[in-house]
Design a protein around this nucleic acid. Structure first.
Length: 111
DNA sequence: GCACTGACTAGGG
DNA sequence: ACCCTAGCCAGTG
C-alpha cells in the first residue's frame, strides 16, 4: 500500500486549509488525521514542504504557540514576519493570544 | 542492525 | 512554575 508516504500529502492539505491569520499545532494536525505517527512526523512532513511553495508552514506552531520551526525559514525572523503580516502578533518567538488565534480543524472543519 | 536525533506532547517530580 | 522522562516514528551515521 502506498499509505506509507501519503500522509505527507494529507498533512499538506490540512495546512493549506489553515485560514490566514490563524495558527494550529503539529499535534492537532496529527490527531485530526488520526495519524499513528505522532506530532513529530507532522514536523518531519513539514520538512519536505519546501517542494511545495503553497504550504503556509509558518501557521503551524507547537502546543504552546512557540515558533519552533522559525529556524527553517532561512532567516530567523522570516516566520514571525509572515505571521505578523497576517495579523498574528508574535512576541519573544511566541504567538500572542495563542488561544484565540488557534485554529482547530476538528471544530472549524466540523468533521 | 544499533544508537542518536528531531519543526512534538503529556505527565510526573 | 521549572526540569526531566518517556512515548512516538522516520532518517542518518
Amino acid at each position: 500500500m502506498p499509505e506509507q508516504r501519503d500522509y505527507f500529502e494529507e498533512v499538506y492539505e490540512v495546512v493549506r486549509l489553515i485560514p490566514k491569520g490563524r495558527v494550529t499545532t503539529y499535534g492537532t494536525i496529527a490527531k485530526y488525521l488520526s495519524l499513528r505517527a505522532g506530532a513529530r512526523m507532522v514536523g518531519w512532513a513539514m520538512n519536505g514542504c519546501h517542494n511545495r511553495p503553497d504550504i503556509p508552514a509558518h501557521r503551524v506552531v507547537n502546543s504552546i504557540g512557540v515558533l519552533t520551526g522559525k529556524h527553517f525559514f532561512g532567516e530567523p525572523n522570516v516566520m514571525q514576519r509572515l505571521l505578523e503580516d497576517e495579523g498574528v502578533r508574535v512576541e519573544n518567538d511566541r504567538v500572542v493570544d495563542f488561544k484565540t488565534m488557534f485554529w482547530d480543524p476538528m471544530i472549524e472543519l466540523a468533521i
